[in-house]
């Protein structure tokens, strides 16, 4: 139905390789998130799959068929753009029905399909409006509606939530996940937000400078990051890294400890430091501790902990949860 395979895909602009060499297999029905910092090539990769850019070399297979040279229209994929890319001169109904019209479907059938999609997305009462008269969340839904009517082989989402405010973003995140549960269609979702990646994905592709750093389930990435980049990117707040003599004690070029894997004590512990900023979130407290000789570290502790700027604390990392990296940043497994 909707498996997607990339084989040694390369995309270069002149001498500059945006994607040096990417290979990837996405199974039918999977929800895969491409995540990485801005400029890591995640959107380019999505556009290559969509057919909006062509590969410099390598193949793209959809359902096992080579589609590398096929135009977007022939790939039977649907895309939701960051800007929504709604047609401003068409009504909501016309927007949603546009792919069907392009496919040559007759008017009655289009109407029926549009109504059905609108009902799913709570858009029924807005069908005659134009996009400029809709809120951000509604526009987002129209864009999704336009994508689902065609029953594509896969959905491609390009940072679809980044133009929404925080509260709406959480809602839409749930809606998209819900949609995936209903449709069971392959979805590829691009984001720079690791929280979206962790909460939505079946599997995550972490990209950095055009390279696939790791491809795995959210918990795999969290528990066994392949390298220092993935370790630092996945998890919030970010992992603390220590190198030099302290790392050498563990037989590594660098070690990493997640903020949630450290004990805080006001009396004794491994690393002594001074509290800088304390962020009290209620449920948790994040302490930014200036550790003597090691630099700034973030640590998560329970919300009720009363620690303030200037307090002296001791941090003790959970020895089982210390990540070790070699000098190239690769993870060292098994002590």
């Amino acid at each position: 139905m909707g498996s997607i395979q990339l084989q040694h895909v390369n995309k270069s602009f002149g001498a500059h390789a945006v994607i040096p060499d990417a290979s990837l297999t996405i199974e039918d029905g999977e929800f895969v998130v491409f995540v990485g910092p801005s400029g890591c090539g995640k959107s380019t990769l999505l556009r290559l799959i969509a057919g909006l850019e062509d590969t410099t070399s390598g193949e793209i297979l959809l359902d096992g068929r080579d589609m590398t040279a096929a135009p977007p229209a022939k790939r039977e994929l649907a895309m939701v753009f960051q800007s929504y890319a709604l047609y401003p001169h068409m009504t909501v109904a016309q927007n949603i029905g546009f792919p069907l019209k392009m496919a040559g479907m007759d008017k009655a059938a289009i109407d029926a399909k549009v109504k059905e999609a609108a009902a799913t997305l709570n858009l029924s009462s807005y069908l005659d409006r134009r996009p400029r008269n809709l809120s951000g969340g509604q526009r987002q839904r129209v864009a999704i509606g336009r994508a689902i009517v065609r029953q594509p082989k896969a959905f491609l989402f390009d940072e679809p939530l980044s133009n929404l405010d925080a509260a709406l973003r959480v809602n839409m995140r749930l809606e998209i996940s819900e949609l995936h549960q209903q449709l069971k269609t392959t979805m590829i979702y691009v984001t720079h937000d690791q929280v979206e990646a962790m909460t939505m994905a079946d599997r995550i592709v972490v990209l950095n400078a055009g390279n696939i750093e790791q491809f795995g389930t959210p918990m795999e990435l969290y528990r066994t990051p392949a390298n220092r980049f993935v370790a630092g990117f996945i998890g919030s707040p970010k992992m603390n890294f220590v190198d030099g003599a302290e790392a050498a004690k563990h037989g590594a070029a660098a070690i990493g400890v997640r903020p949630e894997h450290m004990q805080v004590s006001t009396s004794a512990g491994a690393w002594k430091g001074t509290v800088g900023v304390a962020e009290h979130l209620g449920s948790d407290t994040f302490l930014h501790v200036n550790v003597d000789g090691l630099g700034l570290m973030t640590v998560r502790t329970e919300g009720e902990k009363q620690l303030h700027h200037g307090d002296t604390v001791w941090l003790t990392p959970d020895p089982a949860r210390i990540y070790r990296f070699d000098k190239d940043g690769r993870s060292l497994r098994a002590n």
């Binding site: 969509a50 229209a73 895309m79 753009f81 047609y87 792919p99 392009m102 336009r146 065609r150």
Partner: peptide, 11 residues
């Protein structure tokens, strides 16, 4: 984007 959306929509 909007022209690309049309391309994706099969235009």
């Amino acid at each position: 984007d909007i022209l690309e959306a049309a391309r994706m929509d099969g235009a």
